[in-house]
């Protein structure tokens, strides 16, 4: 049970994370300070997720691949 359920849960969390981070939490990140790497905080946050979202997708890919989901 646990063996089958854990990867599925991980996939769901990884799939939802970019949506939560880029849409739901906006009111909390909608600020100028601190400026990080020359970007106001809001834009730094978006930049961060340009990198982290593909990482989430890649992790899902690895999990599904390990499960033998891709027969093509």
């Amino acid at each position: 049970m646990n063996n089958k359920f854990a990867p599925k849960l991980a996939v769901i969390i990884l799939a939802l994370l970019p949506f939560v981070a880029q849409l739901l939490v906006l009111p909390f990140v909608n600020r100028m300070d601190p400026v990080i790497f020359g970007l106001p905080f809001l834009h730094f946050w978006f930049f961060l997720w340009i990198v982290l979202s593909p990482v989430c997708t890649y992790s899902i890919y690895r999990i599904q691949k390990a499960q033998g989901r891709f027969v093509d």
Binding site: A15, P18, F19, Q22, L23, L42, H43, F46, W49, I50, S53, P54, C56, T57, I60, Y61, D72
Partner: peptide, 27 residues
């Protein structure tokens, strides 16, 4: 101003969604 940055989550999330249906559609 910063409303224009809606394009960033848009163009990221499009692929997060696409990952789940494009392969099936392609097949």
């Amino acid at each position: 101003g910063s409303l224009a940055f809606f394009a960033i989550p848009y163009c990221i999330l499009a692929y997060s969604i696409a990952y789940f249906f494009l392969p099936r559609l392609w097949k």
